[in-house]
């Protein structure tokens, strides 16, 4: 599903240049649940942003679902993001003046789907994350865990190939974190490819494979025995 070869990325701040990614190579197959670990500054978020086409690598190859991602203009990048990718952020990134339902249906709006069908589909995903009764609440009326579940529903709404989660549990307490991870595991069980960036070991243990990043290179990449989140909940 994802192939990355020799990926480099540096940031320039004035005369200083910061080499963040120093040659990343890794593949993700369909249906995998991968966690990317590393301390802050290790480049894990940068990697995820490049995977999500929110940022562009300096050199290296990136292929997503057999489509080479290179030198895209913003219009095509937006189209690919909409079709291939779903994002889950640490700070949820819901639009605060839109109801849960409207937030979930937004990717479908940009896909150009008619209102009626949009609402039906969005409602379906809200049901899936267990928030059907909250569909008309604003984000400010939801708890942190609920917000993250709305965000997950939104990421799923356009039926993407890959789900990218950047510290999805970073702003949640342990119990809620496990609930969210249970949801993510459930989605993965249905066959969706998911990448999770995290720095918490217990969260990483709930994935099927851990990629360890340090100072811009992968120091460890191994499959792990998945811990089901449901046993904690």
């Amino acid at each position: 599903m994802i192939q990355i070869k020799d990926l480099h990325k540096s940031y320039h701040m004035g005369s200083n240049s910061l080499h963040v990614l120093k040659g990343i190579n890794f593949d993700v197959k369909e249906g995998e649940l991968v966690s990317i670990m590393g301390s802050s500054g290790s480049g894990k978020s940068t990697l995820l942003n490049i995977l999500g086409m929110l940022d562009e690598a300096d050199t290296g190859n990136y292929t997503l679902d057999n489509v080479p991602i290179k030198g895209l203009n913003e219009k095509i990048a937006a189209k690919y993001r909409n079709e291939f990718l779903g994002f889950v952020f640490q700070s949820f990134n819901l639009i605060n003046y839109k109801s849960a339902l409207d937030n979930v249906s937004m990717p479908l709006y940009y896909k150009g789907i008619k209102r009626k069908e949009r609402t039906d589909r969005a409602m379906h995903y809200l049901e899936k994350v267990g928030l059907a009764d909250w569909s008309h609440h604003l984000p400010s009326e939801l708890s942190g865990g609920q917000k993250q579940r709305v965000a997950i529903a939104r990421a799923l709404a356009s039926d993407p190939k890959v789900l990218l989660a950047d510290e999805p549990t970073g702003a949640l307490d342990t119990k809620t974190s496990y609930e969210v991870m249970e949801l993510i595991q459930g989605i993965n069980d249905e066959g969706k490819t998911i990448l999770v960036v995290t720095h918490e070991h217990d969260i990483a243990q709930m994935t099927k494979r851990i990629v360890n990043l340090k100072d811009g290179i992968i120091i460890d990449d191994s499959k792990v025995e998945q811990v089901r989140a449901s046993q904690y909940v």
């Binding site: 999500g52 929110l54 913003e74 219009k75 937006a78 189209k79 993001r81 909409n82 079709e83 994002f87 990134n93 819901l94 639009i95 937004m106 990717p107 940009y110 896909k111 939104r154 356009s158």
Partner: peptide, 16 residues
């Protein structure tokens, strides 16, 4: 700006 960033992450083209 952030909202616009979110919208673009969800697939809004610059022209939209």
């Amino acid at each position: 700006t952030k909202e616009i960033g979110i919208r673009r992450a969800l697939g809004a083209t610059p022209w939209m």
